[in-house]
Design a protein around this nucleic acid. Structure first.
Lengths: 216, 216
DNA sequence: CCGCAAACTAGAACAGATTCTAAAAGCTGT
DNA sequence: ACAGCTTTTAGAATCTGTTCTAGTTTGCGG
């Protein structure tokens, strides 16, 4: 076994449990500033590499080198490559969320607001196809629980069901938003495989959203 | 680069293009009988190993050994581990299809017939969690186009829209069936991650199917 | 300033997928 | 039976994720 919940006491790894990403004022062993910086350097190096040649280019040795840390240290911060990818994705989602906040979808119906958000995310990802490919795939594969789906679902609920959060929503509402997120993820995958165009995705998402979020 | 459309002329690999799996009377360079048998032995060995310890246990060296072929030969038939997994999955879907044929879903509404099929598939996969895990994940990751989603979509159309095939269905019908298949795949993944129970999946699939296939 | 535990580093070691090579085996047409 | 071709084979070699080791550096309580 490998990627298993090891009880290591090292630098507080965010992106776990029920999420949280930023410098997050957790409550536990908040390490030194230099550690935060090291972590940041690592994630940046990883993202930079991934945005070039995808996951393949994001080799652990290379990341460590570019980030100026030893391989062992890299593994101390991120027990597996997947964990690193998850962290990179976290940043991307942060970006999307703040973008939504800055310019919230203004459409009239819940479903069109949801479509708006999803297509905005799609365009964002399309801008760096290599990175997108790397991230999406890796996340789907992740053994560990990734906040990806949940964050996306929460985002959808928020924009479609008038500011509802994941906790306040009814089970059915969560199910429906989650389903739409699923459809989106799969469409994204198909696009990365070269089997969908942007327009096709939009059509499918619109169709699905119209039905799933009809009376949400 | 690696898993790239290499122009190798070796044994006709099925599970490509628009699908086909069985001994299939394609039309191209059908190699000798011994090659079919070799191929079959490989896939069997792979499936056997995967149903034990998942993809991890399905190591290329081991597969080659058990199938009684050289490693090089294995790679000649299946250019990458993923391709091998795709082949194994093909067999599983065949099983599901013939099961459906033997005992077609009898429910009254299109959506409940679809739910019936999906949950039957779910149970089938749950029986061999290791294999299921290996297969689903690998398929999603596959660089190559896998017939998985399409076959599932076709199956759904067939049982829900009164025997419609992928070709005859309207674009919207295909979109809707495809979306339901997407939701199912994601739920399956969540289950494999230990985040869904059978009942939860059933509820979500029912909810999604009811809306997506309402008037199909 | 001292000493200790945790964090870090350089680099070797290991594991499994994939590739490469040289030689043996299998077929095909003559 | 033979030459010329492709397929197989055994095994070494390569590549990248991950682990391990030994030694160095850093942060901190005294």
């Amino acid at each position: 076994m490998r990627t298993t919940h090891v009880p290591v006491p090292p630098p507080a790894s965010d992106t776990e449990g029920t999420m949280e990403s930023h410098p997050a004022p957790g409550g536990h062993s908040v390490r030194t500033r230099s550690q935060h910086q090291r972590r940041k350097r690592i994630v940046q190096a990883a993202a930079a590499l991934a945005s070039r040649g995808g996951v393949e280019a994001m080799q652990m040795r290379t990341v460590a080198e570019r980030a100026g840390v030893a391989l062992g240290t890299l593994y101390r911060y991120f027990p597996s490559k997947m964990d690193l990818v998850v962290a990179v994705v976290g940043e991307e989602i942060d970006l999307l969320e703040s973008s939504i906040e800055r310019r919230p979808p203004g459409a009239a119906t819940p479903s069109s607001r949801a479509v708006d958000v999803l297509m905005r995310a799609t365009r964002g990802l399309m801008r760096e196809p290599e990175l997108a490919d790397a991230l999406i795939r890796s996340l789907i594969m992740a053994e560990v629980q990734t906040p990806f789906g949940d964050r996306m679902t929460g985002l959808l609920l928020r924009v479609s069901a008038d500011g509802l959060s994941l906790e306040e929503a009814s089970e059915e509402q969560t199910d429906l938003a989650g389903s739409l997120a699923s459809v989106w993820v799969q469409e994204l995958l198909e696009m990365l495989r070269g089997r969908r165009t942007y327009d096709q995705i939009q059509r499918r998402i619109e169709t699905a959203a119209a039905r799933l979020l009809a009376d949400i």
